[in-house]
Design a protein around this nucleic acid. Structure first.
Lengths: 135, 135
DNA sequence: CTGAGACTGAGAACCGATCTCACTCCGGCA
DNA sequence: TGCCGGAGTGAGATCGGTTCTCAGTCTCAG
């Protein structure tokens, strides 16, 4: 549970519950989250789920992941930064343990005079299963 | 000019010309490429440009860049791998000189048994101008 | 010449994301 | 208690980029 529990509007709370229940490494689309949220709150609307995800993302409680080649964004509970991998054959998404080193980020910041707030690292290729199947 | 010159259908050739004329570091959307392509080929259709970009991307002649938070993909001539930065204030996109180190990619490959074909690194934050303006 | 297949343009279809709007809920205040 | 205002909400419309469809064209081997 995050530290933002108290001030959340009720439905956003539901959205957060769904995302956290799915756990780290889950990659749910807004649609999927909506379906699960309705199990808890049958009258909740899609727009509300979407607004909730935006809010929770702003608060830092959930991560929004834009995977190249994937039409829709996916969400997962906030966690330590890591990279994502998408299999171009079966479409599976998995987490990889990689983050841009702090020194590299600082170097970019210094060289370009920019303020970096967020980083995204993603890879595409063939997952272990599809790679084996190809052989 | 790339090595794929010979076998390209005529209109795809036009698309490639537009992208290469814009040069590295340009970040053109499919729409913008279409507008420029029409200057060379007034009857060219949007679908043709789009199909051309997909084809050229498959051939490795152009890079397709999905910037998080940006609705549409942007394209630029193929070049050495580098990261992209998007200013959340003014929306500007710029190139950053960073790539995931070879050893890190190899480690991920070995650990997960995956075949990595492509990497994408992007950052968001405030560009130098917007950062100064804020102070 | 002829047929097969790639290429093309125009527009429709698709789909996720976002916006709009009327309504509800709730807390503060006279 | 009764009223007010602002945040939250659901349903559906709308938007914008991408992809598909289809009929017409072109190219080239046979």
């Amino acid at each position: 549970m995050s530290t933002t529990d108290q001030e959340l509007p009720p439905n956003y709370r539901t959205v957060l519950d769904v995302v956290e229940a799915a756990g780290p490494g889950s990659h749910l689309t807004a649609q999927e989250i909506w379906v699960r949220a309705r199990a808890l709150q049958p009258r909740i609307g899609f727009a509300t789920v979407h607004r909730g995800l935006i809010r929770l993302h702003d608060l830092g409680a959930v991560m929004k992941i834009d995977v190249p080649g994937e039409a829709s964004a996916v969400y997962e509970p906030a966690a330590s930064p890591h990279a994502h991998f998408r299999c171009t054959v079966c479409g599976a998404i998995e987490d990889l343990d990689y983050a841009v080193p702090r020194e590299a980020v600082d170097a970019l910041r210094a060289r370009h005079g920019i303020a970096i707030e967020q980083e995204t690292v993603s890879f595409t290729g063939r997952c272990a299963a599809c790679e084996r199947a190809r052989a």
